[in-house]
Design a protein around this nucleic acid. Structure first.
Lengths: 250, 250
DNA sequence: GGAATAGTGTCTATGAGACATTATCTT
DNA sequence: AAGATAATGTCTCATAGACACTATTCC
């Protein structure tokens, strides 16, 4: 039987159903540390395991919409706040057996969120938490979600280099030091304050001045800092390169 | 009904089946121009339209394997040759209605192939062709495949900057001028021969010398060129930045 | 010989990074 | 007053890009 005949005879409806889900890797910065949104599973399989928020894509629902809905359900965010969250497709995972019940292909999304209230508050969702990423290695997640989180983290670190998405972790207005803290937290690497300052202001469209300053100086002294908001660039030229860490590449 | 209850009551098997397919954007360079592998559809919908090679993911078949299988079927490549083709996941497309028959979520892949023989030769596949990308704007593709191709092209251009994947368009051994032609073709931009030469040799792991040279000089004169093969780097530090084209970013 | 190309040398502008300095604010 | 921080200045080094030049090969 040729491939052509095989395909012609192939009726997908004759096969066991394939389920399509979305799972969202949601990152935020709380108390100077990168956090990941997790929910506790109530049912089998992987009951009581922590997992990425996600679920089945509904009929006539776009993939992006499904990811946004899952995110809104777990974070309790409404339309306006949700609009400030960056959401992008990450990758798809469909290894047979990744869900023991049936064939499940999951479209993973990556979200960058500003500091949000505790997720369970005012939400219908079950148990949910912001987990510091430092605590992740000692925790086993459901399904292949550890792999998905690792992919999301690597994507996030890379994206800070050539996009202004670091601002999505902050509020409407922020100082250069706030922005630097985001980079240091996500990259896990201290940056030179003076050089970072000049670099940020030199990249077109990264930030724009509001004209205002903070009300007070820092908690341990220092002058008031000028306030900025996100600029209109969607890609950064030139990019903010992260300090050479290791030769991961070879 | 709360979201929690909704999800608990949600049985995906009770809904109309969702089909999962893979589609492959396969790029190669023929006669100095970038080409895209297309197949002509034999059946409805979009009968007689050209489309990306692809098809349903089979039960117990990994997504990557499905993409490799579809690629092999259309190109007629065997194991060893296929091994030289770079294949990576591109993105997933699941907008409702993109396939008029039923809900279809397609996982798109991107492939970089060396110059291959005509696709139809020795293959069970139906009509297939390498289409010069310059001819693409005048051709309507099936489904949302034009969008997928556009996304694949942008990914390909970006990947040449920070990966050594340009070598995947070439044979086992190649000259620096061959490599430069790949960059110029994919980016659609002439590069300075002397500076490119030095830059390529200065990036660790991009190419390594074979010690040999070409048998003859160029067709219009010039000395014999040294031959190189792909190096062991997987990411390039520093990257080969493409010349600033437009401010697409803003 | 003339033309084209491979490979290298040189110069300049630009940016990253190390370090220093000044002004401003908190304790 | 002392310490911390925002913001800017200065210096050095590495790199990109423009341009020049030599050697080699084809016609």
């Amino acid at each position: 039987m040729s491939e052509e005949q095989y395909l012609a005879a192939y009726d997908p409806r004759a096969y066991p159903a394939v389920a399509v889900t979305v799972d969202v890797v949601t990152l935020t910065i709380r108390e100077g540390a990168l956090h990941l949104l997790l929910v506790r599973r109530a049912e089998q399989p992987y009951a009581d395991f922590w997992a990425l928020p996600g679920g089945f894509v509904r009929p006539a629902e776009d993939l992006d919409a499904a990811a946004g809905r899952e995110l809104a359900e777990e974070t309790g965010l409404g339309g306006e706040d949700l609009h400030r969250v960056h959401l992008e497709q990450l990758a798809s995972y469909g290894t047979p057996g990744r869900d023991p019940r049936m064939r499940v292909v999951s479209i993973a999304y990556l979200a960058f969120a500003p500091d949000l209230p505790e997720p369970s508050a005012g939400t219908d969702a079950g148990e949910a938490e912001w987990l510091p990423l430092a605590a992740l290695p000692s925790r086993r997640l459901a399904f292949d979600h550890e792999r998905i989180v690792a992919d999301g983290l690597e994507r996030a670190r890379a994206k800070l280099e050539y996009t202004p998405l670091a601002t999505r972790f902050l509020g409407e207005e922020f100082t250069i030091a706030d922005l630097r803290a985001v980079y240091e937290t996500v990259w896990g690497h201290p940056l030179h304050a003076g050089n970072f300052h000049r670099k940020v202001l030199s990249v077109p469209g990264l930030v724009e001045s509001t004209g205002a300053t903070t009300e007070h100086g820092g908690p341990r002294g220092g002058p008031r800092a000028r306030l900025y908001r996100a600029g209109d660039a969607r890609l950064l030229h030139p990019a903010l390169l992260r300090p050479a860490t290791e030769e991961t590449a070879r």
